[in-house]
Simulated scan of single mutants.
Amino acid sequence: MAKRPTTRKRPRPSSIGTSASTRPDAQEKLPDEVKDRLTHAEIVRLDGEVAGLECGTMWVKTEGSQYGVTKGLLRSFRFHVNGTSVVLYSPESAIPFYAKVGLSLANGDNVCLAIASEALDGQHLVYGFRRPADPRVFVAFAAGSLDFQPDRQMYYLPRLPRFWGKSRWRQAFRFGVAAVMALCLFRYLAHGERVEDGFSAYVVMNSIVGVALAGYLLTIVYGSLRWRLNLPTQRQRNLLAVLHVLEVRDKSTICAV
């Protein structure tokens, strides 16, 4: 059995999820050697018992809603495994395309983690975890919302695809609905328009929306084809590394958090 480390109590996370070391000015002065170290981080395995568990919430800026940039709430689970400090982020509310999932982590739980080999502010980011008694494998896709935090160190670590399973198609559906609404609006505004020479504004605006929609759908199809043809993108390769570390053989057991 792994020895439970002795830890000091950490201050409670602030409501905005930032600290003195994660302000924009600190990000601007991030040394090149630190950026290089983070860029070459790997996804590695860590086994042991959960100790010193602390839970909190933090507000983050998100993208993907029909209203543009907004705010969502993430949960944070900070704990130690075999003396290594780690942090796991999962959605609480208003995180686009991901809903809250019950994570019944507790001190003393035996877990297998996929973490970044390099630490941010002394803590290693958890990409995924599983427990022997639970058939599910939890993968932290929603942690990508941290990309929009003032602390841009997260940007240099390996990143997972922003979407998994049905979440990408939900986004495509919302994008399609917005496009249809735009086309209807253009049609209403162009009612009675006189076209004396060249294309009408209605045709031009519809063409722009059509090109944008087609481009986005092609992006989705491109990513899906590469995944199915075993020609993964860089982010998909990172996901495969997580699944390899956690020894996932059945992808239907993946639970996106």
Rank of each mutant, 00 (worst) to 15 (best):
M1Y: 12
M1C: 15
R4M: 14
T7K: 10
T7V: 15
P13C: 02
P13T: 08
I16S: 05
S19N: 11
S21W: 02
P24N: 01
D25G: 01
D25Q: 04
Q27V: 06
Q27F: 06
K29L: 00
K29M: 03
L30G: 00
P31A: 06
V34P: 00
D36Q: 14
L38D: 12
T39Y: 13
A41P: 04
E42M: 05
E42A: 13
G52W: 08
C55P: 01
M58D: 07
M58C: 09
E63C: 12
E63I: 12
G64P: 06
G68H: 14
V69F: 15
K71F: 11
L73H: 07
L73C: 12
R75H: 09
F79K: 05
T84S: 07
T84F: 06
V86Q: 02
V87K: 04
V87P: 00
L88F: 04
Y89S: 00
S90F: 00
S90L: 00
P91I: 03
S93K: 15
P96R: 01
P96E: 04
Y98E: 05
V101S: 12
L103M: 03
L103W: 10
L103R: 06
A106C: 10
G108E: 14
D109G: 12
V111T: 09
C112Q: 15
A114W: 07
I115K: 12
E118G: 03
A119Q: 03
L120F: 02
G122H: 02
V126D: 08
Y127N: 03
G128I: 05
F129K: 02
F129P: 02
P132M: 15
A133V: 15
D134Y: 06
D134S: 06
D134T: 05
P135D: 14
F138Q: 11
V139A: 09
A140Y: 05
F148I: 03
F148E: 11
R152V: 01
Q153C: 01
P158C: 00
P158A: 00
S167C: 10
R168A: 13
W169V: 15
F175Y: 13
G176A: 10
V180I: 08
V180P: 03
A182T: 00
A182G: 01
L183D: 06
L185H: 01
H191P: 00
E193I: 09
E196F: 15
E196M: 15
D197T: 08
G198M: 13
G198V: 09
F199Q: 13
A201I: 10
Y202H: 15
M205F: 15
N206K: 07
V209G: 05
V209A: 08
Y216A: 01
Y216H: 10
V221Y: 05
Y222V: 07
L225M: 06
R226M: 05
W227P: 04
L229I: 04
L229M: 11
Q234W: 15
R235T: 14
Q236H: 07
R237D: 05
L240V: 11
L240M: 11
A241N: 11
L243D: 02
L243Y: 09
H244G: 02
E247T: 04
R249V: 03
D250N: 07
K251D: 12
S252Y: 06
I254D: 08
A256H: 02
